[in-house]
Design a protein around this nucleic acid. Structure first.
Ligand SMILES: [Mn+2]
Ligand SMILES: [Mn+2]
Ligand SMILES: [Zn+2]
Ligand SMILES: [Zn+2]
Lengths: 141, 141
DNA sequence: TTCAGGATGAGACTCATTCTCAATAAGGAA
DNA sequence: TTCCTTATTGAGAATGAGTCTCATCCTGAA
């Protein structure tokens, strides 16, 4: 049901010893209702354009909690501001950024994931997290 | 000889229609004489501690030229400031960042490079550049 | 319903990087 | 060499994403 993600959110706040507030719910709603890779300002403005009011500080503070608890993923495309995407069904994927259109294409390749873990192991490490971004251009036919 | 990289640098400035200046040479010297992954402030301070004087603005401006012409590589480890490393013999490699020590370990894996190009191709793209960073922890024996 | 203490909002602040502009110095011409 | 045009430089102001402060507000346990 629609309230499932709300309950997950409430659980997390409880676990963190934080209170459930209107503002925190609004930020989470705004994030989970789009699959885009958006920056904090965009999330802030969308809430505001909806006639609701949550401060920038609260947007940032709430996103931190969401990222820490893996409900949201933080990413940096190299343009100086972080982007966020919801992560409801904890599926890992990496990104391809089209240099022509700015489109962000998601991809997942098991072989790649295994290979990078192997590379780390061979050097005496294990991968905790990783960033893999391909900046691409369309193939000319 | 030692002046080879200086000549390469002069060539690039000429090609870009820029003048050869003491300050620009000092920034390039500072960068090429270390294999570390350093931030702009570090480069600025090292030059200054050598009793020489180049402004921050010029350090940033010169690095831009070096990056554009592939004499220097720009990277972002996610701590809010860019890092730079020389790139004299245009060898590609990716990075592993140790979460415990902060060490940056370089690696290169042909198979990985080929695989990511294949992934892009399958989606109708070709890879122009990529970022691949593994945030790792030492394996416990 | 009460009320202690966590949460919020507005704006100050931080810090890396970029911009401004008057003064300086390359470097081609003669 | 000297001259002269114009790119370059330096100091500091400006920018912008993100963080912090603190007076006020609100949550939620009792
Ligand atoms: Mn994504
Ligand atoms: Mn490196
Ligand atoms: Zn991956
Ligand atoms: Zn690579």
């Amino acid at each position: 049901m629609a309230s499932n993600s709300k309950n997950i959110f409430k659980e997390i706040l409880k676990k963190e010893g934080l209170r459930y507030t209107q503002q925190r719910q609004l930020v989470w709603d705004e994030l989970k209702n789009s699959h885009d890779h958006r920056d904090a300002e965009n999330i802030y403005m969308c809430i505001r354009n909806n006639g609701l009011n949550v401060s920038r500080a609260t947007v940032y503070r709430t996103i931190d909690v969401l990222v820490k608890n893996r409900l949201v993923r933080k990413m940096d495309v190299g343009d100086g501001r972080n982007r966020f995407e919801p992560r409801l069904n904890d599926d890992h994927h990496d990104h391809m950024i089209c240099q022509n259109t700015g489109d962000i294409i998601e991809f997942f390749n098991e072989e790649l994931e295994i290979l990078q873990e192997k590379i780390a192991n061979d050097l005496g490490y294990t991968v905790v997290r990783h960033v893999h971004q391909l900046f691409v251009k369309p193939l000319t036919k």
